[in-house]
Amino acid sequence: MRILLEKLMANYPYFAAVVLFTIGALTVMTRSNLFKKLIGINIMESGIFLMFVAAGNIRGGAVPILDEANTKSVYINPLPSALMLTGIVVSVSVTAFALALIVRLYKSYGTTDAHRIAEMRNEVSER
C-alpha cells in the first residue's frame, strides 16, 4: 500500500491525466446538454495533453537550448510539447465547429438539450 502511494506521489501528473480523462469521458457520455458534452470532450483532451507533456518533462532538466552558459547536463524533451501544440490547435478547431453546429441546432429547435432535440425530431417524423 505504501509503495503504491509512493508511486502515485512520484507520478502525480499521470494520475491527474487519468482523472481528467475519466471526468471528461463521463461528462460526454452522461450529460445531455450539448455544451456540456463539448466541455467534456475538451476536458478529456486536456488529460491526454497533460500525459504527453508530463512524459517529456524531466524534473530539474534544463530548457533544450544550446547555450555555453548552460551547465546542466539533463535536458527536457521538447518534442511532446511541440506535438501537443498541434493537438491543441486541432482541439480548438473541433470546438469551434461544434459550437457552430450548436448554434444551428438552437436556431432550428430552440433548445440545446440532446434528449429534447431527439423527441422533437421524432414528433416531426411521425406526423
Binding site: 463539448l38 470532450i41 483532451e45 473541433v94 461544434a98 453546429l101 444551428r104 441546432l105 432550428s108 432535440i117
Partner: peptide, 14 residues
C-alpha cells in the same frame, strides 16, 4: 443534418 453532424463530431473526437 446538423444533428447528425454533431453526434458524429462528438463520437469521432472521442
Amino acid at each position: 443534418a446538423a444533428e447528425a453532424a454533431f453526434t458524429y463530431l462528438i463520437l469521432a473526437t472521442l
